[in-house]
């Protein structure tokens, strides 16, 4: 039986401490804001105000001809529902370019917060008192994982809602409805987002014993995470069509890596060793 009250106390503390740190908060706010609000807003407004017969559209369509022609069948069927080329381009931009970018967020957020809560705690010399508490090693470990994971998933979900709202509102005149929500998005949000946050966390589990400051942890964590994500999403020059099947498979891979890293971490997490390295 784990001591829920103690775990909640540590999670509450870690989240409170994070909210007090500019070095952590600024990337946490700025990156989602740029990726999920500002860029979609600008893109949406531009597309919504583009003359469908403008040469820019024809040029773009010609240059990306091969890409459009080779889209999987399911998405092609979806695209046939639209009358104009601008609508089709809009659909593709927000449903093909954004999901991968969106998935970087939970990973990054979990990574930053885990860096602060693992290495930052060592750096600020607050770990020692925590080690002396009557928690078990397992409770301490679980508690330390929860706050970064919660924050990663939370920012992911809030970010998606903001993104969907912004895209829908800015393109309303063009698209006339919500077009960034379907089964694939649902899987991305509920299945892949928590796993993506898990990767950010797992990377930190891997590096945290080898670093002693927040900055080191943050940078080394990135070194571990980026290749994994690039491998998964980067195949098509940054564009993956997340069909429900792809979303499911990507999620399953991320979950498998996450679970492996967390189990590995649990095996090597002993307060005696933390203390000796303090």
């Amino acid at each position: 039986m784990m001591n829920g009250r103690a775990i909640r106390a540590i999670v509450r503390k870690d989240l409170k401490v994070v909210l007090q740190s500019k070095a952590v908060l600024i990337p946490l706010i700025m990156v989602p804001l740029i990726l999920l609000v500002i860029i979609p807003a600008v893109g949406g407004l531009l597309l919504a105000n583009t003359d469908p017969s403008s040469p820019a559209i024809t040029d773009f369509r010609r240059e990306t001809g091969a890409f459009f022609d080779n889209l999987p069948g399911t998405i092609n069927d979806r695209l046939q529902q639209y009358d104009s080329e601008v609508q089709r381009i809009t659909y593709v931009v927000f449903n093909l370019y954004f999901p991968a970018m969106y998935l970087l967020l939970p990973t990054m957020v979990a990574n930053v917060i885990a860096a602060d809560s693992f290495a930052g705690e060592k750096e600020r010399k607050t770990l020692e008192a925590l080690i002396y508490t009557p928690t078990t090693d397992r409770e301490l470990y679980v508690a330390k994982l929860i706050s970064p994971w919660l924050a990663g998933v939370g920012v992911g979900w809030i970010g998606y809602i903001a993104f969907a709202l912004i895209v829908t509102l800015t393109t309303w005149s063009l698209m006339g409805g919500v077009f960034v929500f379907d089964l694939a998005w649902l899987l991305l949000i509920l299945w892949v987002t928590p796993a993506a946050a898990g990767i950010g966390l797992g990377a930190m589990v891997l590096v945290s014993s080898r670093v002693s400051t927040f900055q080191e942890a943050y940078q080394l964590g990135g070194v571990v995470v980026v290749p994994v994500l690039l491998l998964l999403f980067g195949q098509l020059g940054g564009v993956v069509y997340f069909s429900p099947l792809v979303a499911f498979v990507v999620g399953a891979i991320l979950w498998a890596i996450t679970v492996a890293l967390i189990v590995y971490g649990a095996r090597t997490f002993h307060r005696g060793e933390l203390m000796a390295r303090l």
Binding site: N3, R5, A6, R8, A9, I10, R12, K13, K16, V17, Q20, S21, R124, K125, T126, L127, E128, A129, L130, Y132, T133, P134, T135
Partner: peptide
């Protein structure tokens, strides 16, 4: 047991009340 460590090991970003409340929870 209660331990006063060599360095105070307090969360400097939190208030005294928060520091103590968290440890009250941790020590049941």
């Amino acid at each position: 047991t209660g331990v006063l460590t060599e360095t105070p090991s307090l969360d400097e970003r939190l208030s005294a009340v928060d520091n103590l409340t968290i440890y009250a929870d941790l020590y049941a």
